[in-house]
């Protein structure tokens, strides 16, 4: 249905060709995404799910939640902060009534309802499985020794253990937390979240009243002096 001028058409064709290969860093993006999802990192904004627009542009949307900058910080520190945030890790779902919301932007766009009509047809240039995207299936077998580029499934397994330990810790099930962390250390001695594990181990041991807790905390602070976990380790173990 294109009625574009030759100039515009040339631009469109060149742009499509440029983007046809898809993202080159999608593997990294998936790794980060799967890690953040597993760690419960909140979405950068709350989607007004039930706010069904009547028209494009007729409905203003408000950015609920943290700013992009804040979300970047949250993502960067996601694993740890999500695990340690008090209370629910994710904001509650939006209310069921579609309350119109006012955006600061003059140009706003409504979010369509997530249900109904016909499936959009596939676009011309499209790759379903771009290179660099690791297989999303979590391997069921025990993980291999840590490699320089870990599989996302391995990372997910790590994060599940870390979350489990964190849940035990929150419920003051300290011995259970310690055992889970030991399992992580045994299976992923140099894993992607080894830093977070060591912090949790220090805190758990300190809360258990074990003398090695303070030693572990000092070792952790020596190894990761600028870690975002460092303040909590200092507070919980060294009374600083």
């Amino acid at each position: 249905m294109s009625q574009d001028s030759p100039r515009l058409l040339a631009l469109i064709q060149a742009e499509r060709a440029h983007l046809a290969d898809g993202p080159s860093g999608s593997g990294d993006t998936w790794l980060k995404l799967s890690a953040d999802v597993a760690a419960g990192v909140p979405a950068p904004f709350e989607l007004p799910w039930s706010a069904v627009p009547s028209t494009l542009g007729a409905y203003s949307l408000v950015a609920v939640g943290v700013s992009v900058g804040t979300s970047a910080v949250l993502i960067a520190a996601g694993i740890w902060w999500a695990a340690h945030a008090p209370g629910p890790e994710l904001p509650p779902p939006p209310p069921p009534t579609p309350a119109p919301q006012v955006a600061s932007s003059s140009t706003s766009t409504a979010v369509p309802a997530p249900v109904s009509p016909p499936r959009p047809k596939a676009p011309p240039p499209r790759r379903l499985a771009p290179k660099g995207v690791p297989p999303p299936v979590v391997p069921p077998s025990p993980p291999p020794p840590p490699a320089s580029t870990p599989e996302p499934g391995t990372l997910l397994q790590e994060l599940r253990l870390l979350k489990k330990a964190q849940a035990h810790l929150k419920q003051e099930q300290l011995e259970a937390a310690r055992l889970v962390l030991e399992e992580h250390a045994r299976r992923f001695p140099k894993g992607q979240v080894a830093e977070e594990r060591q912090a949790l181990q220090s805190i758990t041991l300190c809360k258990l009243g074990r003398p090695e807790g303070r030693d572990a905390a000092r070792a952790f602070l020596l190894a990761y002096p600028t870690s975002p976990q460092a303040p909590r380790v200092r507070r919980d173990c060294l009374d600083e």
């Binding site: 993202p23 979405a43 989607l47 970047a72 993502i75 997530p114 249900v115 016909p118 959009p120």
Partner: peptide
Amino acid sequence: ADDAVHDVFLVVARRLAEFRSDSQLRTW
């Protein structure tokens, strides 16, 4: 762009369970 893709799918991850059909998925 990769960071933006990440942010989009972080939202998706939260709401996907409520998405019953893949119809209109792309426009969503």
